[in-house]
Design a protein around this nucleic acid. Structure first.
Lengths: 183, 183
DNA sequence: CTAGAAGGCTAATACCATTAGCCAACCGCG
DNA sequence: CGCGGTTGGCTAATGGTATTAGCCTTCTAG
C-alpha cells in the first residue's frame, strides 16, 4: 500500500464525528474530505460514493445500539429484561440523538442485517414470557415500534418540554410489560 | 395579479404528487418546475426556497393525517376511541407511505403547530379514562410514540413480511388499551 | 388608459457528487 | 539495491442542484 493515510474505517469515523457535530445534513463528502485534510475525489478510493458512506455510517450506529442493548439484556429475563432493553435503547438515543436520527435516513439494504441482530436481542428479552414463535414476533414488533417511536420523537424534539420525559417513558414501559404479562 | 398561473397551493400540490410518485428524495425544485411547465427560478415567486416548500408539504401531510384521525375519534370514547385513533393512523400510513415518510424529514418549526393539533386529538381519545392533566400528557406521548414507531417502521419496510402486520398492530392496540384501563 | 405589481423568463453563481486520468510513494521481489 | 506494480493521493472537467439578480410582459385596479 502507498502512503499510510486514510482507511475506509477512518472515513466512516470522520463521518460519524460530522454527524455528531452538525447533524445528518452535515454529512457531505466535501466536509469529510475537509476534516481528513484531503481533496474530495480522494475519498472515492475508500468509499464507493456518498450513498455507501451513509449506509456504512447507519450500520455502524445500529451496531453500536445493538451492542449496548445486548449488554443490557444479558443476564436478565422477563419484565426486568424488557425494562433494561427499553432503558438502554433510550439512553443511547439521549446520548447520541444525532446519530440516532442519522441512522433512520435512507433505509437501504445492508441495514437489514444489523436490524435482524437487534431483532434477536429483543426476542431474547422476551424469551421468559413463553410466547410462541409467532407471538414472540408480534410482541417484538410492538416493543421495537414503541421504543423506536419514542426515540424518534425525542431525538427530533417533537415532544414539548424535555423534562418529565422520563416519566412518560416509564409509563410506556409499564404499559408494555403489563400487556405482555397478562397476554 | 398577473397571469392566472401558479399559486402557492398549486406548487405544494405538485410537490405532493412528486412525493407520492418518487418518494421524498424526488422532491426537487427543478422537478416541480418541470411538472408545472415553468422554469425553476419562477417557483421563487411562490415559495421562499426548497426548505420552505418541504415544510409546507410536511404541514399539509400532518394536517391530512389529523383530519382523518379526528374524524375517526369523533363520537367514540374509551378503548373504542383509542382503537379507532390507532387504526385510522395506520390506515393513513398504509395508504400514503411516501407521504408519511416525507413528513418526517427535517423537523423544522412550523410543524410544531400541526403537531399540537394531533396531540389534541390524541388527548380527546383519552378523555374517558379520567386521567389527570399530567397523566393524560404522559399517556398521549406513549400512544403517539407507539403509533409513530410502528408507522415509521412499516412505511420504511423495516418489518420483514408485510403479512400479519395487522395482527402485530392489533396486539399493540391491546397492550396499550389494557395498560390504560388498569392504570 | 395608464401605472404598478405579479409572475414569468434568462443569465450567472456557488456548491455538491462524480468521473477520468495523472503522478508519487511505498511495497515486495529479485 | 533497484525496479515494477499497486495504492492513494491529486487536478481538471462534467452535470445537477439551489439560489440571486435583473429584465420584461401581462394583467388589473383606478
Amino acid at each position: 500500500m502507498a502512503r499510510a493515510a486514510l482507511s475506509r474505517d477512518a472515513v466512516v469515523e470522520i463521518a460519524l464525528g460530522l454527524v455528531d457535530d452538525e447533524g445528518e445534513r452535515g454529512l457531505t463528502l466535501s466536509a469529510v474530505a475537509g476534516r481528513a485534510g484531503v481533496a474530495t475525489p480522494s475519498l472515492y478510493k475508500h468509499v464507493r460514493n456518498l450513498a455507501e458512506l451513509r449506509e456504512l455510517v447507519s450500520i455502524r450506529i445500529m451496531n453500536e445500539l445493538a451492542d449496548e442493548a445486548g449488554a443490557a439484556v444479558l443476564g436478565r429475563s422477563g419484565d426486568e429484561a424488557v425494562r433494561a432493553l427499553m432503558r438502554s435503547w433510550r439512553t443511547y438515543v439521549v446520548r447520541h440523538p444525532r446519530r440516532y436520527s442519522a441512522m433512520l435516513q435512507v433505509p437501504h439494504p445492508g441495514l437489514a442485517e444489523a436490524g435482524s441482530r437487534l431483532l434477536g436481542i429483543v426476542l431474547a428479552a422476551l424469551r421468559a414470557y413463553g410466547l410462541g414463535d409467532s407471538g414472540a414476533i408480534h410482541a417484538a414488533r410492538c416493543l421495537r415500534a414503541a421504543m423506536h417511536g419514542f426515540s424518534v420523537l425525542e431525538a427530533e424534539g417533537a415532544f414539548g418540554l424535555p423534562e418529565k420525559l422520563d416519566e412518560s417513558y416509564d409509563l410506556l414501559i409499564d404499559m408494555l410489560t403489563s400487556g405482555l404479562g397478562t397476554d
